[in-house]
Nucleic acid binder design. Sequence first.
DNA 1: AATCCGTGGGT
DNA 2: TACCCAAGGAT
Length: 397
Amino acid sequence: MRDTRPGPSLASAMPRDHAPSRSAADAGDARTRQTAPALLAWYDRHRRDLPWRARPGERPDPYHVWLSEIMLQQTTVATVGPYYARFLQRWPTVAALAAADLDAVLHAWQGLGYYARARNLHRCAKAVAGEHGGRFPETEEGLLTLPGIGGYTAAAVAAIAFGAKATPVDGNIERVVARLFALETPLPASKPELRRLAGLLTPETRAGDFAQAMMDLGATLCRPKAPLCLACPLTAFCAARAAGIAETLPRRSPKRARPQKHGVVFWIRCPDGAVLLRRRAEEGLLGGLMEFPSTDWREESWSVSAAIKAAPVKADWQALPGVVEHGFTHFDIDLTLLTGEVPARTKLEGVWVKPEDFAGQALPTLMKKVARHALAALQDAPAAPPETGRRKKKASS
DNA sequence: AATCCGTGGGT
DNA sequence: TACCCAAGGAT
C-alpha cells in the first residue's frame, strides 16, 4: 500500500516559542529531531521479517540477537540465513553453544568467512555461560568486554536486545547519515563524525528499532548505487538529496591495490586413496582450519624445483595442469598443484582423509577449490585421450 | 592508525 | 573483467 501523505514539514515541527527557521543550523536541528519519528513510522509499516528479529511486542532473545549480529558482521542477510538456522537448531541456547567443541563450531561456520568470528563466538559463549551466569551483560560497557564484540555489536545488542539508548553504526548507517547531513569527508576518516551525528539522531526510546530501521533503510532504499530517494521517508531532511549528491556519498579514500601471491600445494596420496591434510595455525589467515600442505604464499613465483625443496615428504612429484585462483580481502592468490604418492600412511604432521570424507573437515573455500581441481585433474589425467572439446567443470564438494 | 581477517552477490 | 560492498573486530 502506498503512502500518499506529504512528507513532514520542517516548519510545523519547530517549537512554537521559537522564531521560524531561517538558518542552516535551524534546518539541521529540525533534521535531528524529525528523523527518528519519521523513520520509526516508516519502519512500523515496512519492517522486514528476519529470522532473528522478535515480533512486535515480543521480547527479543539476547542470544538470538547476539548470534545474528556476529554472523552479520560484513556478511549479507541472505548468506547468514541458513547458517543462523542451523546454529540455532543445533545450539538452542548460549549454554549449549558454550558446551560445544570448537571444532564443531568451526565446521558449522565453514564457508561463512572471517573465521576468527567463530573462535570468538565460542569463547564469548563460554564467558557468558561461565562468568556471567548464562546471561549477557545488558550494557554497552559490559558487552564490550566480551570476545568478538566491538563497538558496533555492543551497541546493537544493548539497543536491540535490552532497549538501551545506544547507537550502533554499521556501513548502512554510515551511508544514511553521510547523505542525511551531506558529509563529504571521505571514509574512514569520517567515522567519528558519522558516529557523533548518528548519536544525535537516536531517540530516547526505541533505540533498537531506530537502529534496525536505519539499517533496513540503507539496505532497501538508501542503497550504495541508485538510491530510491522518491520512496524515502527522510527525503525532506536529506541534505545530499537537496544538493543532488546522494549517490556519490559516502566518499571513500582510495585503497591500495591487492598484491598477487603464489603458492604450490602438495597433494599427497597414499595407496588407500587418502590425502594428507593439516591444521593451520590458530591465529591469522584461515586460523584453525584445515588445508592441504603447501609452500609459503609469497609474491615471488615458485619454480618446481624450489617448491619440491619445501615439500613435507620425498616423492616423485608430478605437476597437475591448471591453477587454482582465489581472492581474499587484501591479496589474490594462485596455487599450482604437485601430486605425489607415499607407500603408506606415513607419519607426517597432519591427518589422512579420503576425498569422500572431505565434507567432514573444516575446509575454507580456497581449499575446497584445491580439492575440486585436484580430483577433476586426477580423474581426467590417467590414460585419458587428448581433450578435444570443452571440459565441463564439476563441483565435487 | 593501518592492516589483517573470507566469501558471495551485484553491477 | 574488475570492481564494489556487506548488521566489523582485533591488533
